[in-house]
Design a binder for these strands. Sequence first.
RNA 1: GGUCUCGUCGCCUAGUGGCUGGGCAGAGCUCUGCAAAAGCUCCUACGGCGGUUCGAAUCCGCCCGAGACCUCCA
Length: 484
Amino acid sequence: MTIRLYNTLTKRTEPFVPLDGKAVRIYSCGPTVYNFAHLGNLRAFLFTDILQRVLRVVGGYNVRWVMNITDVDDKTILGSALCSQTWLPEMGGQTSDANANLRLFTDYYSKAFFDDLAAIGIQKSDFVAIPRATDYIAEMQDLIRRIFDAGFAYISEGSIYFNLNEWRKHAKYGRLFTIDAENFQQGVRIDADEYDRESVSDFVLWKARKDGEPYWDFDINGVSLPGRPGWHIECSAMGQSLLGLPFDIHTGGVDLRFPHHEDEIAQSMAGYGCETSNFWCHNEFLEVEGRKMSKRFGNFFTLRDLMNRGLEALDIRFAMMSAQYNSVLNFTFFGIESAAKARRRVQEFIYDLHEPPTAESNTVVNTEELQEQLYSALADNLHTPKALERLFAFMNENRPINIAASSRNALLGVFGKMNDIFAVWEIKPRPSREIPEKVKILAERRWQAKKERNFAEADALRAEITLAGYAMKDGKDSYTLENI
RNA sequence: GGUCUCGUCGCCUAGUGGCUGGGCAGAGCUCUGCAAAAGCUCCUACGGCGGUUCGAAUCCGCCCGAGACCUCCA
């Protein structure tokens, strides 16, 4: 099925076709590993996960997915510096080698990042590579040399800058974002950078070494410029190295459109002489309890924070799918509860489909039509809310018990396909719970007591069963025991 | 100041000019000593004011309100 995606480059929703007609090459801006992933990060990663899953399952494509890890920047350097407040004992012992400290620090958060990915159902095996920026320093330097040789970079105070004024004479700057240079609000963050720049809008390609900070040697144009890469250059170099330019889809949060992605386009065009990506797809931000997530508002959460509160990662994954990726999502605790219940309802439906049919099971289901509806919703710019609506509408119209045996496998197939994308259910029979013998006996005694209308005794036994961690649910002629 | 997005049932999220979207919450019923689960039923909203139209939540205008981005925050 043809998939349509909103392309920030053309500002239109367009049918997607891989450039080489076969495999889809996706590059996603990954995390800067200076802290644990927060909800906003998760939304960005989940968006790309859904994207690549839809391309595989609905589009039938092979996908080559790369997500980078930024392990060198101001924050990671700050965090790994000697005497840093954020250095944890678990990271190991610091030495006088700043590069080694940086590695220890970012290793720690990279590992945490992979754990978080696994928790929210993103499989490492779906990536062809998860490159770390510091493993591609040579490639970045090569690109910087190319840009310099092409005349679009200059050296100042030991740093190298991209010359935007020069670049603007050759190409459009502002492909993803309407840039009105006259109206840049002056003075907010500009002063934060102590390096000299020719123009206020030039961005750094290579930052001069500072005392006590990590650095890499770099010889360019006959001079030695020890230092470290700028942020934007990382993605350009890794994208080219691992996927080749132009690739099919570049993803990231809306905030990255400018300047990060804009600069990436300029760099790659200036240095490699080619476009970066055919499609640019950006996920919107999320709000938490109606406000922008911020420590100031007390609504800033990492995945770990939420799991420590007893929330399930897959409920969070499911909740994120209740809004389309390119609209602002209001993340609330009530919303998580809603998501948890809705998710469980689907799971129960799947379990029930595995139960043996009865005499009532004679509804033949048009599974092709259902799948078509679900697929076309997802193919429509990853419209997960629409797909879920169709799924629930179907469930409302059909009870599992009534569905004919002949339809069940096909229907489970459809649910399986959905789960290949949503990845929050299990497609198998209801697991039989191992109930401790002790609890079984208590339950049996209570059932007897109840039949004898000895309710005081029954209630006492129910309390014991509850204490043991089980809920006893009475039916008409039998009861069930469930884990609490 | 510039650019842009959005205001839908208690909450969250869809939406086509006309045929009451979905989830969660809530209400009633069935069931029922209690509790829970499950099933059935109900819950007709679209920021305000004008306009276009036979008909608008959906198109146009104005207003009000919320939010985002504007040089390294996903």
